[in-house]
């Protein structure tokens, strides 16, 4: 049973789940991918990155795939994917609402 999802993800949380959609990555690769994806808008600090990865692993949204020396590679779980897709749907709905409001 997945834990009940308690509301919108923060931007950094959302982008970490997004980065892991393409396959397993280590911490630095996640940060680099996000920076590239957001064209440098989000430059994630190591404290933020480590804290979110620890929390996601604790919530079983991601899991360690491989440990090579000090390098840990994380992959997204089914639960993490569900949470990510729910968030995508929520954001899409927000966008549609905003567009309707403008028309």
């Amino acid at each position: 049973m997945r834990k009940e999802f308690r509301g919108p993800l923060t931007e950094t949380m959302f982008y970490i789940l997004m980065a892991l959609q393409s396959g397993p990555l280590c911490g630095i690769e996640i940060a680099e991918r996000i920076e590239k994806r957001t064209r440098g808008r989000i430059r994630m600090g190591p404290g933020t990155l480590y804290t979110i990865l620890s929390k996601f692993a604790e919530d079983k949204w991601i899991r360690e795939i491989q440990v090579t020396g000090r390098k840990r590679t994380y992959g997204i779980t089914q639960l993490g994917t569900t949470v990510y897709l729910e968030e995508v749907q929520r954001l899409r709905q927000c966008l549609e609402d905003a567009q309707e409001e403008q028309e």
Partner: peptide, 14 residues
């Protein structure tokens, strides 16, 4: 060196 916590929300977690 980039700031340790770029998202202060995440410092609230620990």
């Amino acid at each position: 060196a980039r700031e340790l916590y770029t998202d202060p929300h995440t410092l609230a977690i620990p």
